[in-house]
Structure formats: structure tokens, C-alpha cells
Design a protein around this nucleic acid. Structure first.
Lengths: 289, 289
DNA sequence: TCTGTTCTTTGACTAAAGTCAAAGAACTAT
DNA sequence: ATAGTTCTTTGACTTTAGTCAAAGAACAGA
């Protein structure tokens, strides 16, 4: 993949370095990055979170946080849930500093693009968005998890809350698969991770001999429009094939029209009702190769 | 231009940083970058060139070069043209080192894209190429220069050598505009710079009252397919308008079919012969707004 | 209540990155 | 020939970035 390398070389030299130096004008880069990272998590972040997110040494981070505090940009307190954890959040001055740096970065960016015609800028924006979308998708890994694992259950809860808000009649969590239905011989559960954070899931369970059912394919709002649902579907279908299922089925709610379109695009065809799921309005089936 | 900033944040965090750490595994980053930069300019670069290209302090660079030399990766000599300048070039070991780092970077890049389907990789490659092309174009500035300035003459010489190799009958430099034809009242000369290096040119001269002639629009091979010729043309036409010309004309050689297509696309229409240029086979004209 | 673990802070380091100024050699322009 | 400029080298710094280990406070589970 030389295109990525060439782009990387060019981009970091042209934009990255410039940007870093510009932003870090009056503040070491490490501190600037930390400041931004604290800003990201609006209501304050624990040092522990920041440490893993930025991949820093504990001692190093502790000192940087102290320095930011000394500059009045950050305020810290013990975490309400766990007195070992230290929670830091931006002060008003800290927020102003982040705003100012954002303003500068914006000015720099528009300066860099001055020479382009409006349609060229649009083209550039589109290309960058496409590249970012695909790079994000490439960074997401899909792994099989026991149905009872905390991340699996957390995904299902998030899924339930999501569709409860979306379905006019709401959604009752009792309609979710039980952990034992998607563990071991009975089925499987897959979770998608983006930088160690669960951003999607999908379940497969045996419906009857030779027939699997796919359920609860869900993607976190932050990770939509990347093509992740298709990846999850592919993983589930691969597992179904490995288990010797000739056919997979699934159902969807009447309101999930995008999902229906995706299933059709992925080779599913609509079939008559095969279950008594009160939330379902459409039933699909796909014959596996 | 927030798209660029968002992309930059994401990209440097995901790829840039990773890459840097990976490449700089057994060698400080500064040295690794210097090594690459020396490799870029195949036949050796002067310290002065490297200093401006990398934006480093003279003392710092001097020491790094010494360190690379001590490691046997680089060999240095005084510059043949100027005994103050020091020229450095890679040794065989240095070239091997660059190759090895490239190999590693390549492995890293393909690892990063493992999760993507082949068509998604193609899409990513295309998006990155588009983005890079537009970013390069945005970084190029077109400035007016006296016709006799060294950069202007250097561009014309490069242009002459270029078409001498391309025209079946060759090209004689005496057919170039003379400096006084494109200076002051008589005309203008524009040079395009990419990172302080001339990468294109174009001349405008008065042909007869109310009529200007555009000549010698040329783009360095390294900067082709970016849309730079159009930029140069736009600059020349803008100047023609400012000078009160109602019409601009130009001629082209029979073999330059791409150039002819570009002129047509930019609003030029073919007209009968208007000069006795022995190299010309097509004549064009554009009425300015 | 005891034990082991997690999280943060501190001290004591090292290596890399970068700055500044002085000085000598080589060039350029007058 | 002279004066001013350019380029590199060297010495003497400072700041950033990062590592490692010890220690204390707080927590989790038996």
C-alpha cells in the first residue's frame, strides 16, 4: 500500500508538522495534546482514561497535568466513584485556550487552501472524508465474545436503548437474546471495537437444524455510515457457514428502512413471517454459498 | 475548512504517530527524517538545501549529519561549485537502511488496511491521491518575475530542453522569448513555485494593440496532472485583462495534443495562422470578458 | 480483616530536540 | 583589495519527552 505511505510522508510534512509547530507555539506539544484530549470528554476525564487514550507514562502524565493546573487551565478533583482516580476538567481559561488554538488552526487551514477554486475545495473535502471513513473502518476489528461478557451485554443495552427511542411503541429488553442463546453450541456474539471501545455488535443463534438466525446487528451512532454493519454481517455469515448452516434468517422492525435496504443489497430476500417477534414487520433470508 | 482539521487530527493520531514511532525504532526521528530527505535528492544534497527543506538549525543539522556519517550511512564532500557548501549523499549502507525502513513502513501500512475489502482499498487509494493532488496544487504559488531573473530563465531553459526532446525536429532556443519581450511594458513572466522550487512558467507579451500573446506555458514533469497549467493560464489571462487586451492568442506544436485539449477546454477556439513560428501547427484565440 | 491490585505522585534519571553565539573559511560585489 | 555576506562547525547551553522504580492511598475480593 504505497499510496498510503506516500500520502503520509507528504501530509505530515506539509500539514502535520506545520500544524504542530503552529499550535505548540507557546506550549509544549504534549501539553497541547493533553489539553485537547481533556476538552474532548466534555465533563472531565480521569487521568487513567487520558493515560490509555494518549498512551503516556503515568508519571509523565501526572506532571503534565500538574503543569496545566499551575497555569490555571485545568482544575482537578477526586473522582466521585473511586477515590483513587483523579478527575481533571478545563477551567474557563482552559476552554478559552482550546478555542484560541482551534481558531488558529482554522486560519492556518484556510490559508493553506487559499489557492484552490471553490469546486476544488469541495473535491478535497470529499476526498478527505472518504479517506477518513475508510481509515476508520480499517481500524475497526470484529471479535467473537462470550454472550455473557460485559462488553457484549453493554452493546445489547445500548442497542436496546437506541431502538427503544426509535420504535414508536418502545422496546422491552426482555426481547433481547439471553446470553446462553449466543454462547457455545447455541450461537455466537460478535463485538466491533474501534480503539478498544465497543462500537457495534451482532448475534447469531441456531433457529432450527441447518438454519441460523442473525439478531441485534447494531452500530454505535459515532460509527455509522462507515460500512461497519456490512462487516458485522459478513462476520456473522462466515460463522454461520462454519457452523454448517445453509440458510440464515433475520427480521426487522417496520421503521428500520435503511437496514432493510442494506439486507437486500447484501443478498437477502424477503420471506413470510417465520417467528412471533412482536417488533418485527419484515422477514429476510439468505442462502449461504 | 474544518474537514482538513478533522482529518489532520485523526490522521496524525492514527497513522502519523504510529509510523513515526515505528520508523524511529532504532534511530532518533530527526536522523531518520534526515536520512529520507537525503535519499530524496538522488545525487546528494547540500546541507544548506536540507536545512531549508527541513527547517532545522544549522548547528543541529551539522551534528546530525556528523552522526550519520559516523554510522557509515552517509558520505560527505565539498560541493564542486561552492567550497563553502557541504554535499552529503547516502552510502550503500545508507541506501540499504532507507530501503529497510520503507519495507517496514510498507508492512505497517498493509497491516493497517487488513480489514478492508479490495474495492475499498482501491477507493481509499483514489481518495488519498485526489487529496494529495489538491493539497499540492494549493501549495503552489504563481508569482510575476522580471523576464531576465534567474528563475525565469531557468524555467525557459528547462522548457526548451523538454520540448527539444519531444518535438521530432527538435527545438532551437533562439525561438524563446527574449527577456525584454516579457518585462515592463512589453509583457510579463510568471513562475510557479512549489516549496521555493520553480515548477512551471508562462509568458505574456503584446502582439499588437488590444491583443496579447501567451507563450511558453510549461509545467515541470514532477508537477504535472495537478491542474497547474490552468492556474498559470488563469494568471496570464488575468494579467492580459488588466493590461486591457480584449483578446489573447497562442500557438502550439502538432505533437502537443494534451495542451490543445486543455486550451479548448479553457475557452480557446482555433483560428488561422497568425505568425510564422516554424514550430507551430495550431493557433488559438480567446476573447476576454 | 487481610492480601493483592490499581492508581497516582514523586524522585532520579536519560535521550532527543532544539537554541544561540562565536569563529573561520569561502564567496560576492564594488 | 576590501568589506560584507554566506555557510558550516563547535561549544555551551535549555527544554521536551520519556522511562523506571518506590511508595502511599484506595479499592476489590476472599
Amino acid at each position: 500500500m504505497t499510496a498510503l505511505r506516500h500520502f503520509n510522508r507528504y501530509f505530515t510534512r506539509r500539514i502535520g508538522v506545520l500544524d504542530d509547530h503552529y499550535l505548540g507555539q507557546d506550549r509544549p506539544l504534549g501539553e497541547a495534546r493533553l489539553l485537547f484530549e481533556i476538552d474532548e470528554s466534555a465533563s472531565g476525564a480521569s487521568l487513567r482514561e487520558l493515560r490509555t487514550r494518549l498512551g503516556l507514562d503515568a508519571g509523565y502524565l501526572s506532571r503534565m497535568a500538574k503543569a496545566l493546573q499551575a497555569q490555571g487551565l485545568v482544575r482537578s478533583s477526586v473522582h466521585p466513584d473511586d477515590n483513587r482516580l483523579r478527575r481533571v476538567e478545563l477551567t474557563a481559561a482552559g476552554r478559552a485556550e482550546v478555542r484560541e488554538q482551534n481558531r488558529r488552526a482554522g486560519a492556518l487551514a484556510s490559508g493553506l487552501l487559499e489557492g484552490l477554486a471553490p469546486d476544488q475545495r469541495t473535491e478535497l473535502t470529499g476526498a478527505l472524508a472518504t479517506a477518513q471513513r475508510l481509515l476508520r473502518l480499517a481500524a475497526i476489528t470484529v471479535t467473537r465474545l462470550p454472550g455473557a461478557s460485559p462488553d457484549a451485554r453493554a452493546c445489547l443495552r445500548a442497542y436496546a436503548a437506541d431502538i427503544d427511542a426509535r420504535f414508536p411503541e418502545g422496546f422491552d429488553e426482555s426481547a433481547l437474546v439471553r446470553p446462553e442463546e449466543v454462547s457455545g453450541d447455541a450461537g455466537d456474539f460478535f463485538v466491533a471495537y474501534e480503539e478498544n471501545r465497543p462500537v457495534g455488535c451482532g448475534a447469531l443463534r441456531r433457529l432450527e437444524p441447518g438454519v441460523g438466525e442473525i439478531r441485534h446487528v447494531w452500530v454505535h451512532p459515532d460509527a455509522r455510515r462507515l460500512g461497519l454493519a456490512r462487516r458485522l454481517l459478513a462476520a456473522l455469515e462466515g460463522e454461520a457457514t462454519a457452523r454448517g448452516f445453509a440458510v440464515v434468517r433475520l427480521d426487522t422492525h417496520a421503521s428500520l428502512t435503511e437496514a432493510q435496504a442494506m439486507y437486500r443489497a447484501c443478498g437477502y430476500r424477503e420471506i413470510p413471517r417465520y417467528d412471533d417477534n412482536v417488533y418485527a414487520a419484515h422477514w429476510f433470508e439468505k442462502r449461504l454459498a
